[in-house]
Amino acid sequence: MRWTAGIVGTGRMAEVLGKALVLAPDPMLRIRFLMGRDPGRTAELGEALGAEALALGEDPPGVDLLLIAVRDDALEEVCGGLARAPWTRGVPKLVFHGSGSRGLEVLEDFRARGSVLGVLHPLFSLQPGMEMKDRIFVLSGDREARALLESLVRSLGGLPRYVPDLDPALYHCAASMLANGATALYAAGLELLQEASGGALGKEEAKRLMRASLEALDQGEAARVLTGPVQRGDLETVARHLESLEKHSPQQQRLYRALMGFALSLAARGGLAEGLCRDLALLLEEEGDS
Rank of each mutant, 00 (worst) to 15 (best):
L178K: 10
V63P: 15
G270L: 11
Q231V: 01
A216M: 11
S125I: 15
G233N: 00
M130T: 08
L266G: 08
G81S: 14
T183W: 00
L117K: 03
V153Q: 06
P86S: 09
T237Y: 00
L23F: 05
G62P: 14
M260Q: 08
L34E: 13
L255C: 01
L226S: 04
F33Y: 11
L75S: 12
R161N: 05
K93P: 01
L49R: 03
A188Y: 03
L193I: 13
A83Q: 05
G40M: 03
P39A: 09
F124T: 04
L214C: 11
S249T: 05
D109I: 06
G98N: 09
G80L: 12
K19Q: 12
L123E: 09
A200K: 15
A145K: 00
S140I: 01
R240P: 00
S151N: 13
A69D: 06
L149S: 07
L49N: 08
L107D: 01
R208D: 07
E287L: 06
A216T: 03
L94V: 07
T227F: 03
A175L: 11
L21Q: 08
R12I: 09
G36H: 05
S176A: 15
G158K: 12
P168V: 13
M210Q: 09
H241K: 01
D165A: 06
A222V: 06
G18W: 07
I136R: 00
Y186C: 02
C173G: 12
P39R: 10
L152G: 04
P128L: 08
R32C: 12
T237N: 00
S176F: 08
A14S: 14
E236V: 02
L159Y: 04
V138K: 03
V78H: 04
F96C: 09
L217N: 03
F262G: 05
R146G: 02
S101W: 01
R254C: 01
V163T: 05
L117E: 01
A187C: 11
V106E: 03
F96G: 10
V225S: 01
V153M: 03
H241G: 07
H248A: 09
E144G: 03
L190A: 06
S99H: 09
A5C: 11
L120K: 06
K203V: 11
G36V: 09
Y171L: 03
D142S: 05
E243A: 14
L45G: 12
I136L: 02
P122G: 13
L29W: 08
S155W: 11
L54K: 14
V138W: 05
A179N: 14
P164H: 10
L259N: 01
L245V: 02
A206I: 11
A147C: 03
V119M: 07
F33G: 06
A206Q: 07
A74V: 14
L152K: 02
I7P: 12
G11W: 06
P229C: 00
P25T: 14
Q127D: 05
R224N: 05
H172L: 15
D26M: 02
Q194T: 12
D218A: 15
S125K: 13
R161G: 00
L56H: 11
G46C: 12
